[in-house]
């Protein structure tokens, strides 16, 4: 197992290298000039040129890449063009809201979707099954921001139960933290509930037709045990895969949700950085996301062996 993990970790190095080169080149090749953005509307061409020179953007691309890669190897992501802060500081300041949102979203999604999927499989062909599948289609079809606005209108504006927007750190009180996170997390979880419920239903339906389930029933085992101990455990590998992929996709999803709900997380940092052409920040955030994707994939692969003892590394 340790050798497998080491091999996988080593394999991430070329992946990250390719990501680094691609991100760097794509940013330089897309239209945009951070110096013009910084200088503002009243700035003269001379002033813009001066800022460009200060930022090192007048250097050849290879030289710029060399400087950035050199800093990166030393663990330095550089300094944001806009904020008077290092990129590492910016990311550290933004990571908590994003991880909190992702965590609460997945907790909601898994705790709702898995029972719903199992129920739909168990009641296959009934109105319950059709309701769950209907909800899945809805979840896939409706954009996150529409769900968000609808929830805001009902629960924040009409009923006044929760704030319209904003984020409060968990360290400032769990009540406020949850109160502000619940709407964005529910909005974001809808699509994952749809995805995981559908996959759970398909997997469990397949497993329920297996001989060992029939045997368990013949032995007089209660349905709850059959469903959750025998069927769900054996159907877990594809469900875990979907959950893992969901967590990875979630990082993309938070961009919209964080913007709608004004949550100061990595998603908004990415949007702000892209709009302002803040190259060091965009590069670092995308590299970070790549590391997270790789880590999640590794985690999924390792989790398989927990559910299926036949899988060994």
């Amino acid at each position: 197992m340790a050798a497998y993990i080491l091999r996988r970790l080593l394999a991430t190095i070329p992946v990250l290298l390719i990501v680094a080169v691609l991100v760097f080149l794509m940013l330089r090749l897309t239209p945009g000039d951070p110096a013009a953005v910084i200088a503002g509307d009243n700035a003269s061409t001379e002033q813009i040129d001066l800022i460009r020179s200060r930022l090192g953007l007048d250097q050849p691309i290879l030289v710029q890449f060399g400087i950035w890669a050199g800093h990166l190897l030393g663990g330095n992501f550089g300094e944001s063009f806009f904020f008077k802060k290092t990129v590492a500081e910016l990311i550290l300041g933004r990571i908590e809201p994003t991880l909190s949102l992702a965590f609460v979203t997945m907790v909601i999604a898994v705790s709702v979707a898995v029972p719903l999927g199992v129920l739909a499989a168990y009641k296959q062909g009934t109105w319950i099954d059709r309701m769950v599948m209907g909800f899945s289609v809805f979840g896939f079809s409706v954009p996150i921001f529409v769900v968000g606005y609808a929830l805001i209108y009902v629960f924040a504006i009409t009923l006044g139960w929760v704030p319209v927007q904003g984020y409060q750190s968990i360290s400032a009180g769990f009540g406020g933290f949850l109160q502000r996170l619940i709407l964005p997390a529910v909005s974001l979880s809808v699509i994952y509930i749809a995805l995981i419920a559908r996959m759970t239903r398909a997997s469990v339906t397949e497993v329920l037709g297996e001989d060992y389930v029939r045997t368990a029933r013949a032995k007089g085992q209660v349905e709850r045990i059959i469903l959750f101990r025998h069927a769900l455990k054996n159907a877990a590998v594809p469900i875990v895969t979907v959950i893992g992929l969901g967590i990875a996709l979630l990082l993309g999803g938070v961009v919209v949700t964080e913007s709608v709900f004004a949550i100061p997380g990595l998603g908004r940092l990415t949007v702000d950085a892209v709009l302002a052409r803040d190259y060091p920040t965009i590069q670092a955030v995308i590299l970070l996301f790549s590391v997270i994707y790789v880590a999640i994939n590794l985690g999924i692969d390792l989790a398989y062996s927990l559910f299926d003892p036949r899988i060994r590394y």
Binding site: A156, I157, G160, V164, A262, R268
Partner: peptide, 18 residues
């Protein structure tokens, strides 16, 4: 000064008194 980039949300926040 709160950073709310979504105009609709800024208006919602004002209407809700936030």
């Amino acid at each position: 000064w709160l950073a709310v980039s979504d105009q609709q949300q800024a208006v919602n926040s004002l209407l809700a008194g936030e």
